[in-house]
């Protein structure tokens, strides 16, 4: 099995809370090493400390690689440097938008509260929007509402 094949399998594993983005696109896979034929080390970086999806994602990595015939799988948790939304690819940002989640905004400084106004609505692209809560459906998101189309939406916070 080659490294590319392993990456192809990991590309199939989605975040259960953002179902159209893979763990690779989210920047949770730092590296994949073939330590021996049929033995794989996956360097995995969890997102938020309390993210409940972490355990599920790890189980799925083990299961998918096992099904593909990998005998020895080691998932090494790599905490440093910490995970950040800055590693999102342009494709990943577009996919977030398609899922109805406003992607991290360049005017939002990391570590600051999400802006009170102006995050573009992922449904109608209006910037006439307002922050409802800095904490949304999950720790990584804030809750906004679009004044133009009325739709409430999630915003993926810069982290």
């Amino acid at each position: 099995m080659t490294k590319e094949e392993i990456l192809d399998i990991l590309q199939q594993i989605k975040d259960p809370e953002i179902p159209n983005l893979s763990v690779i696109e989210l920047g949770m896979i730092r590296d994949v090493e073939l330590s021996a034929p049929n033995a794989v080390i996956v360097r995995f970086t969890p997102t938020y400390s309390g993210c409940p999806a972490t355990t599920l994602i790890k189980m799925e990595i083990l299961q998918r690689l096992k099904e593909a015939g990998v005998e020895h799988i080691e998932i090494v948790e790599q905490l440093s440097p910490p995970w950040t939304t800055e590693s999102f690819s342009p494709q990943a940002l577009e996919k977030l938008r398609q899922a109805g989640i406003a992607p991290p905004h360049p005017h939002h400084k990391r570590g600051e509260d999400p802006p009170a106004l102006g995050i573009p609505c992922p449904y109608c692209e209006s910037t006439d929007t307002k922050l409802l809560s800095a904490f949304g459906t999950t720790a990584c998101k804030a809750l906004y509402q679009c004044t133009t189309c009325g739709q409430p939406f999630d915003y993926f916070k810069c982290h």
Partner: peptide, 20 residues
């Protein structure tokens, strides 16, 4: 409701940190 979500999220951060 928004406070409920915020406090739960903050609680979860703390439990995750404790776990680490």
């Amino acid at each position: 409701l928004e406070i409920d979500l915020a406090l739960c999220n903050i609680a979860l951060d703390h439990l995750g940190q404790a776990n680490a």
